[in-house]
C-alpha cells in the first residue's frame, strides 16, 4: 500500500483511540465516584448533620448540602445582579467602541485569575475586614466575584445575539433604551441567561479553595449569614483525611457529582427547548 495512505491510517487510529481514551476516562471518573459514593449513601446521609445527636445514630452531610446550596444560589444571584447590568451596558449603552475591548480584556483577565487567589482576596477583604471571621457572607461574596466574569461573558454573548431589527422596532415606537432592554432584550435573551446562570451555579457549587479560605467549616447548617458554613466540596476534602469519616467524603462527592450532572443536563435542555420560542 501507498506510504501516504498508511500514514493516514495510523494517524486516524491514533486520533480515534485518544478520543476514546478521553471519553473513557470521563466515564471512569464519574463511574468510580458514583459507585464508591452510592455504597456510603443512606437516608441518614441526607437528613443528619455532622454531629450525631443520639448514640448509634449515623452521621450525615445535611450541613454541607445546605451550606453549598446557600453559597451557590446566593452567589449566583449576586453575581447576576452585577453582571447583567455590566453586560447590558457594554452592549447597549457603551458609545465609545474603544472602551469595549478594554472591558473585555479586563473581564477575560479576571476569568484567568486562579480560584485560590480569589480566596485570598476574600480572606483579606471580606473575612478580615467586613465580617471579622469565616462566614457564609464572606464565602458568598467571594464566590460571586469568582462567577462574575463567567456570567458577564455569557450574558454579553447572549445579549449580543438579540436581533437588531427587533430592537429597532422598539426604538421606532418611541421606547427608551431601558424600555427596550426590559421588554425586548431581556425576553429574547432569557433562555440564554438561564443557561448561563445554571453554568455559573455549577461552577460555584464545585469550588472548594475560595470557600475554604472564606466560609470556614461548620458541623451544622448555618443559621445566619454571619456564621461559618460547610460546603460539599470542602466536606469531601475535610472528611477524606479524617480517620473513620471517609464514608461522608464519598457521600459528599456522590451528591456533588449528581448535582453537577443534573445542572448540566437542565442547562442543555433549557438552551435546546426554549431557544425555539425566541426569534432569531
Amino acid at each position: 500500500m501507498d506510504k501516504r495512505k498508511i500514514e493516514e491510517k495510523i494517524f486516524k487510529y491514533l486520533m480515534i483511540s485518544s478520543t476514546a481514551a478521553i471519553i473513557g476516562t470521563l466515564a471512569l471518573i464519574i463511574g468510580s465516584v458514583i459507585v464508591k459514593g452510592a455504597a456510603e449513601v443512606s437516608v441518614n446521609t441526607f437528613i443528619n448533620d455532622d454531629v450525631a445527636l443520639f448514640p448509634g445514630e449515623e452521621h450525615g452531610i445535611l450541613h454541607a448540602i445546605i451550606g453549598s446550596l446557600y453559597l451557590a444560589i446566593n452567589s449566583t444571584v449576586i453575581s447576576f445582579l452585577i453582571s447583567f447590568p455590566v453586560a447590558i451596558y457594554s452592549v447597549e449603552y457603551m458609545k465609545k467602541k474603544s472602551l469595549s475591548p478594554a472591558l473585555t480584556i479586563s473581564i477575560e483577565t479576571l476569568m484567568g485569575v486562579p480560584s485560590i487567589v480569589f480566596g485570598m482576596f476574600g480572606l483579606f477583604v471580606f473575612v478580615l475586614v467586613l465580617t471579622r471571621g469565616f462566614t457564609l457572607l464572606a464565602g458568598t461574596l467571594t464566590l460571586a466575584l469568582l462567577e462574575l466574569p463567567l456570567m458577564e461573558r455569557g450574558i454579553e454573548e447572549v445579549v449580543r445575539m438579540v436581533p437588531v431589527s427587533l430592537k429597532e422596532a422598539s426604538y421606532a415606537l418611541g421606547a427608551t433604551t431601558f424600555e427596550t432592554i426590559k421588554n425586548i432584550v431581556l425576553k429574547q435573551a432569557l433562555p440564554g441567561i438561564v443557561t448561563v446562570s445554571l453554568i455559573s451555579f455549577g461552577r460555584g457549587i464545585g469550588e472548594a479553595a475560595p470557600v475554604m479560605l472564606t466560609a470556614g467549616f461548620n458541623p451544622f447548617p448555618p443559621a445566619s449569614l454571619l456564621e461559618p458554613a460547610a460546603s460539599l466540596p470542602l466536606a469531601v476534602y475535610t472528611y477524606l483525611s479524617a480517620p473513620g469519616q471517609q464514608g461522608k467524603a464519598y457521600a459528599s462527592a456522590f451528591t456533588l457529582t449528581i448535582i453537577v450532572l443534573i445542572i448540566s443536563l437542565i442547562s442543555r435542555y433549557v438552551s435546546k427547548r426554549f431557544t425555539r420560542y425566541v426569534s432569531r
Binding site: I22, L26, V33, I199, G206, L240, A249, T257, V260, S264
Partner: peptide
C-alpha cells in the same frame, strides 16, 4: 463534545478524590 463539556464541569475536588 457534550462529554468533554461535562468533563469541564466536574468540580476539582471530585478529580482530587478520584
Amino acid at each position: 463534545k457534550s462529554m468533554i463539556d461535562l468533563l469541564a464541569g466536574i468540580p476539582s475536588v471530585v478529580y482530587g478524590l478520584w
